[in-house]
Amino acid sequence: MKNSKYIFPELKRKNINRYCEIKSVASYIPEKSIDNEEIIVKYNLPFKSSFITKSIGVESRFIAEDDQSDSDLLALAAEKCLNKANFKVDRLSRIIVNKFYGDNLLPMTASALQRKLNSGTAVHAFDIEGGISSFLHAFDAASRFISTGDESILIASGGINSKMISKTDPRVAFLFGDAAAAILIGHSEQQHILASYFYSNYEFYELATAITPLTLVDKRETMTLEQQMASVYDTYKMGNWKDAEDFYKEAVYTIATNLFLESGLKIKDIDLVLVTENNRKIWELTLEVLGVGEEKSISLIKNHGNTMSAMLPLLLDYGFATGKIQKGMNIMLISHGEGLSGGGIIYKV
């Protein structure tokens, strides 16, 4: 891989002397679950459930109620997270939200979440976009805020991903599920984030895109009214991920190399690898490049689908809840996002 045609950014060492740690993590999963066969029957699709499961790794997913919004799901996860830590919302230094579309384009969904948490203090609340990778972007940003003096930051990720997608394109119709997860990050005397590394490569910009209303406006003269209405629920376009397979492999190798260079660790020192499950194959490819067996990871895509920015915090919550994550473990988190934009963090529990 040393002769790669992809040029990744050089690792820049951080000057961080004030540390942070995860104080609490929680998630909210909608009650309603639908399987592949239900989608096939409902939309009269010419696919077999077994084919869908084999190709993307999803058998079922949880779906929010029609009257729920992104901020509703985020608030339920955030409340659980704060309650677990016995932490009052007014003590927060900041609130950061990651979501797909959100309640509205403006105001930011973080403002809606702040209101639903009944915050009596006008703390800084804002969204960090970035699709699947936005949680790690927020985690990295929060660590830097803490390093400059913040005490406690709430990150709430996920929401409703299944609504604004095609119901006939098998690449997306069966892929996404709804969920939200939240983590509370606070100041620590000990270092927990041992390394971080991020990149973006526009060469695969069109591989996965979410269109905006402006895109529909630009195309309105060439579309019938029926086509325009259908497009409202067909906002996420996805190509064949295998077109970028070589890049994904190189990205995993490069992320790991830079994380190990900064942390001084080796792959044998990593106790658990958590990966955004864009689909089952990308999860398997990531572990294969790292030389890690499935027993050293966690997979939720089979029954949850791709929950976008909620994936990594959802995996963290599951790991803590089931005891698979224990104090003292070194956790490698890797994200593959749209853009293509991704990266990783090594976190010591």
Rank of each mutant, 00 (worst) to 15 (best):
A256E: 14
N258D: 10
L259V: 01
L259T: 00
L259S: 02
F260S: 00
F260H: 12
L261W: 00
L261P: 01
L261V: 09
E262A: 14
S263F: 14
G264D: 11
G264P: 13
L265K: 13
K266R: 03
K266W: 08
K266N: 15
I267T: 10
I267W: 02
K268P: 02
K268V: 00
K268Y: 00
D269W: 06
D269T: 00
I270F: 01
I270R: 09
D271M: 05
L272E: 04
L272K: 12
L272Q: 03
V273G: 01
V273C: 09
L274Y: 08
L274F: 07
L274C: 07
L274I: 06
V275F: 04
V275R: 04
T276A: 10
E277F: 06
N279S: 15
N279Y: 14
N279L: 05
R280W: 11
R280D: 07
R280H: 12
R280A: 10
K281S: 07
K281Y: 09
I282C: 03
I282D: 05
E284A: 09
L285G: 03
L285M: 15
T286F: 05
L287A: 11
L287Q: 01
E288R: 15
V289K: 15
V289H: 02
V289C: 06
V289F: 11
V289P: 08
L290G: 06
V292Q: 08
V292W: 01
G293N: 10
G293I: 15
G293M: 04
G293A: 14
E294P: 07
K296V: 12
K296M: 06
S297A: 12
S297R: 04
I298F: 11
S299F: 00
I301R: 12
K302Y: 03
K302D: 11
K302P: 10
K302T: 00
K302I: 02
N303T: 14
N303C: 12
N303I: 03
N303H: 13
N303P: 01
H304Y: 14
H304T: 11
H304A: 08
G305I: 07
N306S: 06
T307Q: 08
T307S: 01
M308L: 07
M308S: 13
M308E: 06
S309P: 00
S309A: 14
A310C: 11
A310R: 05
A310H: 04
A310Q: 06
M311F: 04
M311K: 09
L312A: 04
L312I: 07
L312K: 11
